[in-house]
């Protein structure tokens, strides 16, 4: 009996399992998408979030529309949409100023995808909501105040 051969087989078997996990997608090989932007989602203020997103000081723009109700009865489900007439928008982000972490979501739009996204966010209290877009290397934003009558956190 060749003991070394046994050990080598065992080690080989272990590696095989690792390869299988990688192949099955449990260990994701970097696809054509960015890592989840932890620093931006963990930021506590609008300024920190903008910095983490590399947006600096975005200009206000009237070519952006934030579609949301003026008053949200239930802060747990606030429909928010961002629409723009500008061409070539590369990314959209939605920020809620007074949430513990302002960044709610960010969207990367490959060429051919329209500047139109809609989702639903949680809001702890009445707050300004910002729509931020990246177009041609520049950042633009617009904001709207949404009044919340019933908070979406804990309660």
């Amino acid at each position: 009996m060749n003991v070394q051969r046994r050990e080598a087989l065992k080690a080989g078997g272990g590696l095989g399992l690792f390869g299988l996990l990688a192949a099955a997608g449990l260990i994701t090989p970097g696809q054509a998408r960015a890592e989840w932007n932890k620093s931006a989602f963990d930021a506590k203020t609008i300024e920190e979030t903008l910095k983490a997103l590399g947006a600096g000081k975005p200009e206000n723009s009237t070519d952006l529309q934030l579609t949301a109700p003026d008053i949200a009865e239930n802060g747990a489900v606030v429909p928010v949409g961002v629409v723009s007439t500008l061409a070539g928008i590369e990314a959209i982000a939605i920020l809620v100023e007074k949430n513990p972490n302002p960044l709610a979501a960010s969207f990367l739009l490959p060429a051919g995808t329209e500047a139109y996204v809609q989702t639903r966010v949680k809001m702890g209290q009445t707050s300004d909501v910002y729509a931020l877009v990246k177009v041609g290397g520049k950042f633009l934003m617009t904001k709207k105040e949404i009044k919340v009558t019933l908070g979406g956190c804990g309660g």
Binding site: N99, N101, F107, P110, E114, V117, Q118
Partner: peptide
């Protein structure tokens, strides 16, 4: 097989998330 949207969500997205978007083609 061609990516048309890549989104990142934070904790502020509502329970049972809803998402709508449009693409050409």
């Amino acid at each position: 097989g061609k990516q048309v949207l890549a989104a990142q969500f934070g904790t502020a997205i509502s329970k049972n998330p809803y998402l709508a978007f449009k693409f050409k083609g």
